[in-house]
Nucleic acid binder design. Structure first.
Lengths: 335, 335
DNA sequence: CTGAAAGCGCTTACAG
DNA sequence: CTGAAAGCGCTTACAG
């Protein structure tokens, strides 16, 4: 694989490298005949631009980083996919960075910025708590997707999310309407600046409003994986058996919980009602289909790209709230 | 975010940029006191190396590309995850590129090569057919993971996979042993240089050996998604109802098929036995647990990294076959 | 052990 | 519309 540079193209076409550069970057100030000649030479030699060299010289490139934290989270990976698809249509060039839950995404962005001089960043699954300062110091357009970042100061910061607190309250309201009062919570309570934590804080408020004392014994922590949620559900079953509904803070957690219930001989929803959260594809295809609060991921993806584009044009950041949709499915029933 | 360069560090520490460069790259020929001073300056200024500039100058970096084709394929994304984890321990720096099923991965690699001067590539989910030449022309160590590439010429090419043909035959043997003779095939027959196609060619051989005439009407094509497999299973059910076993060429396809069967009022395995392929986590957590042929993904990941490392040290490529493991689970039963 | 200097492949004012 | 030249931030022989 011999490396073809702009010099080779220039020699082949009999012009200077300046002209080649202008032609391959679609600058207007190039003669039509020259451009044609160029393209032929590029084609013939199989030239590909060395973007390292280009971005070293340019002070800004059109690269947009998508930083996805938590590669196990299917809702987020799906959202990332959609963002990538939509952005590509808008001619954005993406740099996808999938990082560990424990990694520091701002460190990642600073590194990417140095490497490629980013034009913007879309954050998925960020944990903002304790990183407010770092987020504010980034002076390129940032969009926090699926998490509300209204509390951050920074004209370049946007966010798009549902109102997780209300959504969690809503889910719980539905369960209470169906007659459930012993509701177990499976997932992560976290802080109220964390999207998943907010859901449970909303759930708690709903319970209290309905005169249900929230029982800490009915909460089990787990992360967004099948084994973890299966184990959490099993711990709960080992300890107590008097709940009749489970509110899982994501679909994947609900699916793990349903498996544990099944293994213990309980039927869903006959013995226990289960609701998830996110509204992923898997919720539709598990047996029974999972009741869930669907986040409008297509719309979320569109808005994320939209906000980023606006930011790149110099507009101020905005914080958009989207409407989730309750999916009443077969995993819950009236008591 | 002011950009700090090597010059700023040099000035801060009162040395030349050459020395800074050597210090930050852990070269041995730097005085201990100087190195210390350097690190302090780097720390103070928040310097991060501009890798564009570095790789422009260096003729080889330590970047390894992981090209994952088909982001929907959970077996592959899981395998990629493992490879990334193992490689990180071995100090490899990865460049993850997730591309569309329709995209050209060799074009992607050539681009990455130009951008970052790759030290090697791991391909996941490649379709080699019609791209033999391109693979052979890459003159950096390549590992094809989960697909056999023995038929390619190139000292730098390695591969690690199971014997998909035998595995497909084995799955079918099991079904026949259980008394099944009307076996439907769900997935993609493809060519025999394609890992999933091989499975069905193996299945066909098993059938023929057992005197079963393969009935094309019992084959439905779909890709590796839940909606696609659900639709394929539905088409099959619409057309024929006389099969009593389904061999899906991946777990995700099997799960979609089980949902369709369930919606049509059939029970698994009571009415229809279902087997998947891959042995992903989801197979364990669906209801009923899915019988499947497990690919040893942990071992596959280890071997992929091992082969890549060997290749980077100049060794010749190898083609390794791993042993899959049959998981006899609750989705199948004796007739 | 350290520094001055060349050069990696591009882009972009500046001339013409 | 085109070219010569400077320079982006690094690394690396080459001297010393």
């Amino acid at each position: 694989m011999k490396i073809v540079t702009i010099n080779d193209v220039a020699r082949e076409a009999g012009v200077s490298i300046s002209t080649v550069s202008r032609a391959i970057n679609n600058r207007p100030d190039v003669g039509e005949a020259t451009r044609k000649k160029m393209l032929k030479a590029v084609e013939k030699l199989g030239y590909i631009k060395n973007t390292s060299a280009a971005s070293l010289k340019q002070h800004q490139t059109d690269f947009v980083a998508v930083v996805l934290r938590g590669r196990r989270n299917i809702f987020l990976t799906d959202l990332a996919e959609r963002i990538l698809d939509i952005g590509k249509e808008k001619q954005l060039r993406f740099l996808t960075e999938i990082i560990d839950e424990k990694a520091d995404e701002f460190e990642t962005v600073r590194r990417l910025y140095r490497e490629r001089k980013l034009a913007g960043v879309i954050f998925l699954g960020s944990k903002l708590e304790g990183h407010e300062k770092e987020a504010e110091e980034l002076d390129i357009p940032c969009v926090f997707s699926s998490i509300e970042a209204k509390f951050l100061n920074g004209k370049h910061i946007s966010s798009v999310s549902i109102d997780n607190f209300s959504a969690g309250r809503e889910v719980t309201n539905r369960l209470v309407e169906l007659g459930h009062r012993k509701i177990a919570l499976l997932g992560y309570f976290g802080s109220i600046s964390d999207s998943t934590g907010l859901r449970f804080h909303g759930a708690k408020e709903s319970m209290e409003k309905h005169g249900i004392v929230f029982d800490k014994e009915l909460y089990e922590e787990c992360d967004f994986t099948l084994p973890s949620s299966y184990a959490a559900m099993s711990r709960l079953l080992m300890r107590r058996k008097d709940f009749i509904a489970v509110f899982a803070s994501s679909d994947i957690i609900a699916i793990g919980a349903m498996k544990a219930l099944n293994d213990w001989g309980f039927t869903v929803p006959g013995d226990v009602s289960v609701v998830g959260f996110d509204g992923t594809e898997q919720a539709d295809y598990c047996i029974p289909s999972l009741a869930t609060m669907r986040q409008p991921s297509e719309q979320m993806a569109h808005t994320s790209v939209e906000l980023l584009l606006e930011g790149m044009q110099g507009h101020e950041g905005k914080h958009v709230l989207l409407q989730p949709k309750w999916i009443e499915s077969k995993s819950i029933c009236k008591l």
